[in-house]
Amino acid sequence: MNTTVVSRRAAVPDLVLTLGAFLLGLALLLAFLSVAGFDAAAGLAALWRGAFGSRYALLSATLVPAAPLLLLGLAFALAARAGALNIGMEGQFAMGAIGATWVGLAVGGWSPLLAIPAVLAAGLVAGAAWIVVPVVLRWRFGVTEVISTLLLNFVAEAAVSWAVTGPLQEASRSYPQSDPIAMSARLPRLLPPDRVHLGFVVALAIAAVLWVILARHRLGFVWRAVGASPRAATVTGRLPVERVAATVLLLSGALAGLGGAIEVSGVSAALYQNLSPGYGFTAIAVALLGRLHPAGIVVAAILFGALQAGAGAMQRDAGIPAVAVHVVQAVVILVMLLATRRRG
């Protein structure tokens, strides 16, 4: 199924729309919190403290989740610009984390210059591998990737559960988690002791590369043409719609897998269950808020990274469950869909 998710022409200037949608989401969440009887003011204060309130909040909280959100946001946007919908990033992230942990445990004797690229490559490969089945189902059987990628999220969850109680479980076998990966396989911190790590720079670099490809390269032109009008592309016969869909989905899966790898290599250093607090779905909001443009996605990833960081503080300090942020994500998605939908 090819879908043009958003048109590139908006009724309102970009930055106003982006910030407006985000603030509207926050406002609706606070209104809901008040109605439900939570202390919304304390929640907002905790949210701000946790996200931007200090150097620590920004560099050790906000920018840490911003890195995987940026990669996954790019993953969604890349496919969506070419008319394919990858709703399975949560699963590809998990498989990337499994792959990265597996390699990370094995490269103890290597130099970091080799070990880190190996771990990141494992994430890329595992993420791409996890989307092969949806790609084949679409290519051979015409099954929409929307449902197949979505269903595989649950299979990936079961796979992580199996890995951390089976082949990758820590040597002492006490908890469902892996042993820590080798020190040489861990992404260095950018500004120690703050927790923001090299993965954020990797994600920024990929955003820049994608920007160039989408705006300047022939490939980007073909992808956008297919995304803009799959029917025209099919009818003219000049553009290989299905080949483009397969390519962008594989790349999208690889990027989402890389997200899982940098999370293991830069943050958790081990494999756990529920490593992602729903990044795969948050990233859809990130991509739409960024108007499917790499530069916009960088801004959106930092905003949602802040929200993720703030949600942690909100749960600790104001007793408001962190799942509350899903309300903001939902509002952002719906507002962006409505504000940028096709007219006619």
């Binding site: 509350a324 309300v327 998605i333």
Partner: peptide
Amino acid sequence: VSVWGRADQIIAGTAVTLAAVGVTGLVAQ
């Protein structure tokens, strides 16, 4: 959103599910 607002059904449906996860989590708590 999708019938009257004519937004993409698939993404809008994903958003509705996200909203439900958030709202039910809050109300349950």
